[in-house]
Design a protein around this nucleic acid. Structure first.
Lengths: 230, 230
DNA sequence: GTCTATAAGGTGATAGAC
DNA sequence: GTCTATCACCTTATAGAC
């Protein structure tokens, strides 16, 4: 709990920082949405305050409720917006053409690029998703055109294993591993920095090289033992 | 936002559930701590309510403040308690004897056992850790006896790679991968269930078989290409 | 130790002037 | 569209009786 004075200084700093960029000439609605995104990601849906959002957007609380009927509605907008950058990419990657390894490569590359741009997103999403598991999928996930590609990708993995193209294992474990190695470093940063004995700069440098590292690791793990067949 | 009536019914259900076990004969202080742990894990540090904790413990708010001076203090106690089951295990595993692969095996096994028992812990911990990065490590981490084993484990990995015992890669990436594959499935459950097209029961069954799956995957990835040396 | 009652301030939301 | 003023309620925390 901060004192009122400190709170005002903090908010002023944040506001100046936000306004110093191109935010100044945005419409109030856009300024609110940006401020709300930052606040919700910082403090979660219950931790963020409408006053905080208003201050950071440089307007007042009444205007918040003029544009958005209530806090929950504003949150849902912010969340769906964040989520909807993620889901369509997943869909197009896994429903497209290519071998299992090619799809994994496209997934790791695409998702890492998004995560480096918005490193706070996964913790935010997974957090709120655990509090309200059902709500979200009924929205975005089902609005995607075509059947979800998840089941067919799992089948494709099974087939490549049967055909001896990649080593045998549970396809779901493989997918778990791929997602885990891609996403977790962005969720566990504070802890991993301690364990890996690196500072923030070094950690971020690690993250930028992560694509090749993950892909080599997976390729190696999926390699078939060398046989003498031609 | 629940109606007051629904809230009371919900809390009564939770309370009856908690009390039906062995909670009845615990001291008030212990009942409060248990209730607080559940509430904080469910709703986060800012989402949990003192009233909620009091109801669930079967006492009233005033008694909360009799035992614990304020919400923040209560939270810190709960958090440190959760965290302190995790850190000492890590320490003892990585500072003990054994090859890299043996240590990884011990880590995966030990941590999975803890995670299956308390699946909500990692999201809770990582969440609050990101909000207050510095506070926690200064407490528990530095109270451990002996030097932190992290740096020496990284060196051990490097040596085994130089000696040709395991395949060459960045030791920090290896460690990241191990932790990611172990922990992430417990954080991303709601999302992974959708992606992997499994229900809760099937997902938990996957998790119980995870140890072998992870270890085989890592062993395979670290295997040296076959040479003709004896 | 445990309770009821209540203070003191925060929080989401609205009314109404401009 | 944007503001000030204000309401009704929630939340933490304390005072004081038993």
């Amino acid at each position: 709990m901060l004192s009122n004075e400190k709170r005002i200084i903090l908010l002023l700093t944040i506001w100046l920082n936000a306004m110093s960029n191109k935010e100044l000439d945005l419409s109030s609605k856009e300024k609110i949405l940006n401020a709300a995104r930052r606040a919700f990601i910082r403090n979660g849906s219950s931790g963020a305050r409408m006053q905080e959002i208003a201050d950071e957007a440089g307007i007042n609380k009444a205007l918040l409720h003029y544009y958005f009927k209530n806090k929950e509605g504003l949150f849902e907008l912010v969340f769906n917006d964040a989520f909807s950058e993620f889901i369509p990419k997943i869909h197009s990657i896994f429903s497209g053409d290519g071998s299992v390894m090619e799809k994994i490569e496209r997934y790791v590359e695409t998702h890492l690029e998004l995560l480096i741009r918005k490193p706070d997103l996964p913790l935010f999403i997974l957090n709120e998703m655990q509090r309200e598991p059902e709500r979200f999928f009924s929205g975005i996930l089902n609005k995607m055109p075509g059947a979800p590609p998840f089941e067919s990708f799992l089948k494709q993995i099974e087939e490549e294993m049967k055909d001896g193209k990649i080593r045998n294992m549970n396809p779901r474990d493989l997918w778990m591993n791929v997602m885990s190695m891609t996403v977790f470093p962005f969720i566990g940063e504070p802890m991993l920095k301690k364990f890996l004995v690196v500072n923030t700069e070094e950690y971020h440098s690690l993250l930028t090289k992560r694509k090749d590292s993950i892909l080599t690791f997976i390729q190696q793990a999926l390699l078939l033992p060398k046989t003498n067949n031609p």
